[in-house]
Design a protein around this nucleic acid. Structure first.
Lengths: 326, 326
DNA sequence: TAAAAAAATCCAAACGTTTGCACATTTTCG
DNA sequence: CGAAAATGTGCAAACGTTTGGATTTTTTTA
């Protein structure tokens, strides 16, 4: 492979001048800059980024650490982040933690060893605080998204969980449902706490009672959603706001099994506009979290060196599952 | 950050010995090796992989180039590949081409500049041949998967397209459907050509006529699948084998709209066991391509330096959409 | 036209690791 | 006991780029 020394030799100048010429340094004469660029093209020169990174002490790589890549939400976040970062000349190194803090620690160390320019992180669910992150990353720029450690400084990009849940619940109320339960997720996670708060706020602002008996916690996958659905039927609910789409899917399984018609007898709205929700019958009303935009926003926060918390609004998508004919 | 020189100074030895000790070189005394490792731990040493990569002329990064990360199939392939590669001490740099050859060229150049240890590639749909790949990558190890250039040497991991389509079509025949059409995808891609061949083979081996009038090419997304569905109804079909899941979804839209019952009046089977297919009603029978395994296999092929073509079998998953009550 | 200022280039070290070869020390063996 | 072999370390160069400061060349100014 050709190096800057090859170019320098071919032109009878030194590698330092070639380096500066290629970097657009104003200290080199226009004439020689053109000559260098021409020769570089002629010899098919491509900068050795490894050498460049070593000398400069940092790479043009941004690490993205996420629980799992298969999840539609995260792969969309990555897509958004990558778009912005590529435009800015960065590349993306992706690490999956599989929801394990150990793997998260390993991933962060790896990224640190690569001297990445920054890290975009959505932490594993079993992480209690961000001490390990701070300790490993030290002064490497960090942007957290979706799942964030409140105790860690720096940029945080989160969804409008409370507002979204409020909107979804309010929509059910306005559609005429009377006893609205919620599948609430895990209370160890900030995002789910906020969603529950939004649900409660909507009920109270409409003058409806908040009943802890119809709050179904710790349900997040299809199976536990199914069980929550059965309980909601028994408890006399006629609607559910679910903090997750997969648990809502499980709940509709239960509703169908018990012969309840959606949306006539029972209304359902869920957070997370996963692709399958529009394909269910009846199609599920959801809150779109705009994962692609979340990724873009996180990437921009890194590029701009922002340290702010930014909130990505959620958008209610009304489909059949909540259209009660009054 | 601590370097091997720091360790060397602390122990009164030279960096070269430290380097050898950490690399497990048998030429260093067991005693000093232990001392070095102890000191390394004490000082919190982490190898600077950038410097290491520069010296060794290659990194422990494997590049994965794919059309789009959001597609369930590809994100699962990545998941599988990453699992194997991480185990072997490699990291993964992911590049999306967005189906554009230009972006593919850029991605390959970037990876080459990072001196990646190898590349896993599934090419953009508008690429006609692999000349650009060969030209850029030169002697960097390459493993192609799913979408492969036949003219390029080296390892290729593909699905059992022909066999899968054969199996799916045969299943429809055995279920009692009489006039089976196909949504065939793009004939510029080897995978779709093979699927069509498998479909045809099944018909002929069952003594059924192959009728080009009920082969619907160039349909791959929901919209074009819908149109193909309408045409199939007009052509008197009572079943469809679709080479893609999204086009099958569109076809079922058309069938429902025209009041046909699935599976009683019309059977559907599709390649690609996308997550949504099990959630449709009726649930769609599909061929599971085992994307996670495909990723694992591709990664292993790289690690082993294989140059073979490996075929990942497809598995027929029979759901409601093809269960005719005869 | 000489001195000063500005512009362009060069020199050499540095980034942290790896590695061929040389050197020193110890062990083996006739 | 001395030579040869084996063992363990050290030296120094190399990977390709970047960059502070020195040096040379050109331009400006008195």
């Amino acid at each position: 492979m050709t190096t800057i020394t090859d170019i320098a030799n071919a032109l009878g100048i030194t590698p330092s001048t070639v380096s500066r010429a290629l970097a657009g340094n104003p200290r080199v004469k226009e004439e020689t800059r053109v000559a260098v660029e021409k020769m570089a093209k002629l010899l098919g020169y491509e900068r050795n980024v490894v050498a460049s990174n070593l000398r400069k002490g940092q790479s043009h790589i941004v690490g993205i650490v996420i629980p799992r890549i298969h999840r539609e939400f995260f792969s969309n976040v990555i897509g958004g982040a990558e778009r912005i970062l590529n435009q800015a000349g960065y590349n993306v190194l992706i690490c999956q933690t599989m929801e394990s803090v150990e793997a998260e620690i390993k991933a962060l160390k790896t990224l640190k060893n690569y001297r990445v320019a920054g890290v975009l992180l959505s932490h594993a669910i079993d992480a209690l605080n961000g001490n390990h992150v701070k300790e490993i990353l030290e002064d490497t720029p960090l942007v957290q998204f979706d799942r964030v450690f409140p105790d860690l400084p720096g940029a945080k990009i989160v969804g409008a969980n409370c507002e979204g849940a409020f909107q979804a619940t309010m929509h059910l109320i306005q559609a005429g449902y009377k006893r609205i339960g919620t599948i609430a997720g895990f209370m160890t996670s900030q995002a789910y706490i906020e969603r529950l708060a939004g649900y409660r706020l909507a009920l109270e602002s409409a003058g409806l009672p908040f009943d802890p008996a119809i709050v179904y916690e710790n349900a997040i996958v299809r199976e536990t959603g199914y069980e929550a659905g059965l309980k909601a039927i028994d408890a006399g609910c006629d609607a559910l706001y679910s903090a997750g789409a997969f648990s809502a899917l499980g709940a509709t399984d239960a509703l169908k099994e018990k012969g309840l018609r959606i949306p006539e007898d029972f209304g359902v709205v869920a957070t997370s506009n996963e692709g399958f929700t529009s394909l269910m019958s009846p199609a599920l009303s959801t809150l779109n979290q705009h994962p692609f935009e979340m990724g873009e926003t996180a990437a921009r926060a890194f590029l701009e060196g922002s340290r702010e918390t930014q909130v990505i609004p959620m958008e209610l998508i009304v489909r059949q599952s909540s259209k009660k004919q009054q």
